[in-house]
Simulated assay, not measured.
Amino acid sequence: MALTCVCMSANVYVVCLQHALSTEKEEVMGLLIGEIDVDAKAKISAVVMLRRSDKSKDRVEISPEQLTAATIKAEELARTLGQPMRVLGWYHSHPHITVWPSHVDVQTQAMYQMMDQGFVGVIFSVFLEDKTTKEQEVQVTCFQSPSRMAEGSMTPDHYMDRVEIPLRIVTSTCLSQPCLQSMVELPEILVEEEDEVYQATKRLPYLNQLAQLHNSAVYTKSLCHIAEVVEGPLLNALEQRHASNLKKCEDLAHEMKQLTQALASLPPIKSA
């Protein structure tokens, strides 16, 4: 059954956008988790951020091990939440370029649809600047590959074909635990990526002391950048949310006290 639309939780949208804005020079990627209802609506309620094996401004890859790990996480969420959950799609970023999928994106989407016809792709185009107003904007698109491509009958002339799927952002009353966990994991994933690159440079042969010192300085600078641009603002946002929640709890407790006093002052109800 063809998908009618994709309903993405506002929590998931915030997490994906935070991931896309974490780096201005390379693309990022993650997997979307949720379920498809009887009306062929894909409801996305969780996200799995992926650690990049290849950091590039125009290419991002996912390993089979990461897809397997995401599937396991979806099964764990299904048991925790008591509802069906599975990997429904993937998302990645387009920093400084158009939101429309490239021919590589369309081919990748077609490959995923061979395994699951309900699989969708979402692209976040970030760091786009209007040359006149100098204002930045974020664009989002949701797409699938044509069925003939997903069936393996594509031709080079059809590589740029795509099917746009309506995307709806569903309001969330609170930050869900799975999305909160994903937000907290983002700085850890970025540090792991930098550490992997740094450890690889240490294994290079004939590396003199000056080169080692330079690599260490670049590694330290990258960690400081993550702390300043990602971890610091995230911590401030969570602290503000925590303060807002405490204030809301105080207001609700005060309202409950007033209602309790009002009920106590009412005359007793006489039974017939």
Rank of each mutant, 00 (worst) to 15 (best):
P95L: 08
P95Q: 11
P95I: 12
P95R: 13
P95T: 14
I97Q: 08
I97S: 10
T98E: 14
W100P: 00
S102A: 06
H103D: 14
H103F: 02
V104W: 03
V104G: 04
D105Q: 07
V106G: 00
V106H: 01
V106D: 02
Q107R: 12
Q109R: 04
A110C: 07
A110N: 07
Y112S: 12
Y112C: 15
Q113P: 00
M114Y: 12
M115C: 11
D116A: 10
Q117F: 09
Q117M: 09
G118L: 06
G118T: 15
F119P: 12
G121L: 13
V122I: 15
V122Y: 01
V122C: 05
V122H: 03
I123L: 08
F124R: 06
V126K: 04
F127K: 06
E129G: 00
E129Q: 15
D130E: 10
D130V: 10
K131T: 07
T132R: 13
E135Q: 10
Q136S: 12
E137D: 09
E137Q: 05
Q139F: 08
Q139E: 15
Q139K: 13
V140K: 03
T141S: 08
C142W: 05
F143L: 02
Q144I: 05
S145H: 04
P146H: 01
R148S: 06
R148T: 02
M149N: 10
E151A: 15
E151S: 14
M154T: 01
M154P: 00
T155G: 07
T155R: 06
P156C: 05
P156N: 10
D157A: 13
D157I: 00
H158D: 14
M160F: 01
D161T: 07
D161M: 07
R162Y: 14
V163C: 11
V163I: 10
E164K: 11
P166F: 06
L167Y: 05
R168D: 12
I169Q: 05
I169T: 12
I169A: 05
V170N: 00
V170R: 10
V170P: 04
T171A: 09
T171N: 03
S172H: 06
S172N: 11
T173H: 13
S176L: 09
Q177W: 06
P178S: 08
P178M: 04
M183D: 03
V184M: 14
V184W: 01
V184Q: 13
L186I: 12
L186Q: 10
P187S: 05
P187F: 07
E188W: 01
E188I: 03
L190E: 07
L190Q: 12
V191M: 08
E192M: 06
E193D: 08
E194S: 09
D195G: 00
D195P: 02
E196H: 06
E196W: 01
E196N: 08
V197I: 11
Y198T: 02
Q199T: 11
A200F: 11
A200K: 11
T201Y: 12
K202S: 01
K202D: 00
K202N: 11
P205H: 09
P205N: 06
L207M: 14
N208E: 04
N208F: 08
L210E: 15
A211S: 14
L213S: 15
L213C: 09
H214G: 00
H214F: 13
S216F: 09
S216A: 13
